[in-house]
Amino acid sequence: MLQTEQEFTRILRSRLEGTLPEEELNDIVSDYAEHFRIGKADGRSEEELFRSLGSPEDVAREIRATHLVKQAEDVKSCKNIFHAVLATLGLGLFNLVFVLIPFILLVVLLMVVFILGIMFAIFGPAAFIYSVLQILGIPAFAIWQSPVAGVFFSIGITTFGLLLVIGDYYLARFFYRIGIQYLKWNIAVIAGTEEES
């Protein structure tokens, strides 16, 4: 592969197009263009400058991950955090253990709590209706020893289910915030370093 400024810029552009806004991409490319320009005026060859910059693929991966994490911070959504996590994974095998596994565990935990909450929130009203029907004397629906206790019990279960769902929502927001901070730290300190060592 040719180690020229043109090649460096081409790879950077092709890897970042569609992710970064055009303006930001131009800004980044112009930084490297300035680097090559001053370096050459300093008497260094394009190849030498290319080599000391490191691989443009690595540079692009890091810029991409930083951008997507920032985007997930600015606009909170499942899609954005998913993209941010994926981009961080691309920074090195290391992150399979330190990003992917914690992420999957958290998603599973949040989903289990959510499903439990929904189940209680559906079961509660159903049990409530059965209890009322039982009080009205329709024996086919008799599920409680004492239908009056059943009424209170089902109200309790419904409330518990709704609280679980609401609690899960706040838990998700909490982990989202912590997760963003962690990804930022990960990119700044660890990611993209192991291949070079």
């Binding site: 930084d31 490297y32 680097h35 000391s52 910059l53 691989s55 810029i63 930083t66």
Partner: peptide, 20 residues
Amino acid sequence: SKRIDISEGTIYPLLHRLKD
């Protein structure tokens, strides 16, 4: 890079982050 041997290309993304 005079003192630390590092991929020089990663300094620019860092500068961008510091600016952000």
